[in-house]
């Protein structure tokens, strides 16, 4: 299943791509959220950073037995070693989510992935295919 997020910055596009992934996993709705934890990752390219970021969210959600519903990308930066990201993930316990849980996402993959400015120069787009 392909997911696409866009925004005025790379961070916003990443947040929206994650939101698209969450929509596959839990019915969209108003949830009383708690902090699941922090996802920090790095990548040689923005695409690698995106895939690491999404897979990091899947991993921490499983480990904490939570359903992620929102993520706040606090920082994306570039240095000689490549890109790095820091984020905070929010969600609800899976027990609480109950019947609102949908499909498991096994992994975010590189297939069809890109992070680039769209035709609108103020719009960043982040996309990839997730394995269900």
């Amino acid at each position: 299943m392909g997911i696409l997020g866009w925004g005025q910055s790379v961070a916003e596009a990443f947040e929206e791509a994650a939101a698209a992934m969450f929509d596959l996993m839990i019915e969209p709705g108003e949830y009383k959220q708690a902090v699941i934890g922090e996802v920090a990752c790095n990548g040689n390219t923005l695409v690698e950073l995106l895939i690491e970021f999404l897979n990091g969210i899947l991993s921490i959600s499983d480990r904490k037995e939570m359903a992620a519903v929102c993520v706040d990308v606090e920082r994306i930066s570039m240095s000689d070693g490549g890109w790095s990201l820091e984020s905070r993930v929010f969600g609800i316990s899976r027990a609480e989510a109950g019947g609102n849980l949908l499909t498991e996402v096994k992994a975010a993959t590189y297939y069809g992935s890109s992070v680039a400015k769209g035709t609108d120069p103020d719009r960043w787009e982040a996309k990839c295919v997730v394995d269900l």
Binding site: I26, A67, A97, L102, T103, E104
Partner: peptide
């Protein structure tokens, strides 16, 4: 009896 679906344990 058989746990299934997202989040099942």
């Amino acid at each position: 009896s058989v746990p299934a679906g997202l989040g099942s344990t």
